[in-house]
């Protein structure tokens, strides 16, 4: 069989993380629901984490794992604040559609 399929190298993991990152960016750009936008941002952070852990494995540096752990903590904190803001926005206007948030325009 083709060695690209059977022999998994660092490139496989990194390309996977790039694809996940791109999906996250697409989600942020096309979705209007703020909740889904936040989930897409989480996808981006996860993509970066995969890259970090792959590089940590590649360089044999366990510090990358500690950084990934810090990133997970930061992501959790960000989600908590983001969801709080989302709830506050929903309380005021009964929707969370980012394209309809146009009070602040000129």
């Amino acid at each position: 069989m083709n060695s690209v399929v059977t022999h998994i190298g660092y490139g496989h993991f990194l390309v996977l993380s790039a694809i996940l990152f791109a999906i996250g960016v697409v989600g942020v750009l096309i979705r209007r629901n703020a909740l889904i936008v936040m989930m897409s941002i989480e996808l981006m952070l996860n993509a970066a984490n995969i890259a970090i852990i792959t590089f940590a494995r590649m360089h044999g540096d366990v510090g990358g794992h500690s950084f990934a752990l810090v990133v997970i903590a930061v992501a959790a904190a960000e989600v908590a604040v983001g969801l709080a803001i989302l709830v506050a926005v929903f309380r005021g206007r009964r929707h969370i559609d980012v394209d309809r948030m146009t009070t602040l325009k000129y």
């Binding site: 990194l14 993380s17 990152f21 996250g24 960016v25 942020v28 703020a34 936008v37 936040m38 941002i41 981006m44 952070l45 993509a47 970066a48 984490n49 890259a51 970090i52 792959t54 590089f55 940590a56 590649m58 360089h59 990358g64 950084f67 990133v71 930061v74 960000e78 604040v81 983001g82 803001i85 989302l86 506050a88 926005v89 980012v98 948030m101 602040l104």
Partner: peptide, 25 residues
């Protein structure tokens, strides 16, 4: 304002983190 700032800031965080990952790599 908080919502927009948050979404944009978090989006930027994604780029920052991926950039850091590549530099680390």
């Amino acid at each position: 304002a908080a919502m927009k700032y948050f979404l944009m800031g978090a989006f930027a965080t994604g780029f920052l983190l991926y950039g850091i990952a590549l530099i680390y790599g």
